[in-house]
Design a binder for these strands. Structure first.
Lengths: 156, 156
DNA sequence: GTTGACCTTCCCAAGTTAGGAAGGTGCAGA
DNA sequence: TCTGCACCTTCCTAACTTGGGAAGGTCAAC
């Protein structure tokens, strides 16, 4: 089958299939006389594997490792599980981080009237910084936000 | 003060200060005779504002808007609050998404012995896909994971 | 004068996905 | 056979934020 059909069957766009081939994530596809890429069921299977791993937030680098384990008869489930647990930890860390940012902002928003006047605790919070001289009992910026803006979800 | 001191005072790296200037996020700094950038307290104040907004996950585009509101005496707190609430919604959506991915993966991990044998439900889950023919009572892939890999945390 | 810290501008990189240009191929119907 | 259309090829560009480094100018202290 051509790349278009393989794309539809695997859920990976043709663009991405070509890209994955170019970076060596998946092996170079056979070519037809025309130069068109030729795919078989096994190729689609592998592409679907990649797709699902992406859907679970694995980076391409980690998917590379997963594909290696997938095709390695002498792998141990311990290796796979370790990789998965590491990934889970990172996912939850990022989720927590995002939720913390949302919580801080919600705290500021609750204090904001949201009316026609310019006075706004949200602006004030951004302006005055994480540690205003007089602050409420619950610190609005409780954690070290130093590197707060660092994380990307899928491509850190 | 020079850019280095402004950087230390605001928490924004010199690299980033130059970049923010180049994209017009902050006004062009005055130059000394040497060509060095010259910063005053007001500039540091603005850079700190940007820094805190970044720490709360605002994109540079949104920070541009925030800076506009900040400096606009005729702003309404309603405008600010609306922007904040939109941002909170997005943050929480992304956090939820990440947590969902983690949950799915944790479900697979719990079923994995993690021993020396190759048999591994995690690999099987990736291989067999979101809807295996016979599946446990609790679907391991309950949500439409179609666009699961789309979100970036801070620069979507 | 020399050293070392600091500054300047400019180019390149990360990660993943997508859009488009310019041109070749394959197949159907008129 | 010709035309049209869908599909394919490769290559370039973009998004977003941050940082690394090169090559060279400036400033202060010694």
């Amino acid at each position: 089958m051509n790349i278009g059909e393989a794309s539809r069957a695997s859920g990976v766009s043709a663009k991405m299939i070509r890209h994955y081939e170019s970076i060596g994530l998946v092996p170079r596809a056979d070519r037809q006389d025309s130069g068109y890429r030729e795919y078989g069921p096994e190729d689609v299977h592998r592409l679907s594997f990649v797709r699902r791993a992406r859907d679970l937030g694995f980076s391409l680098d980690r998917i590379r490792v997963l594909l290696g384990l997938w095709g390695d008869p002498s792998r141990t489930s311990a290796e796979v599980k370790a990789l998965a647990l590491t990934h889970i930890k990172e996912l939850e860390e990022k989720a927590r981080h995002l939720q913390e940012m949302a919580d801080v902002l919600r705290g500021l928003s609750l204090a904001c009237d949201g009316d026609g006047r310019p006075d706004c605790p949200i602006i004030a919070g951004l302006e005055a910084g994480p540690r205003p001289s007089s602050r409420p009992s619950r610190d609005l910026f409780p954690m070290p936000v130093d590197q707060a803006a660092k994380g990307k979800v899928l491509a850190p």
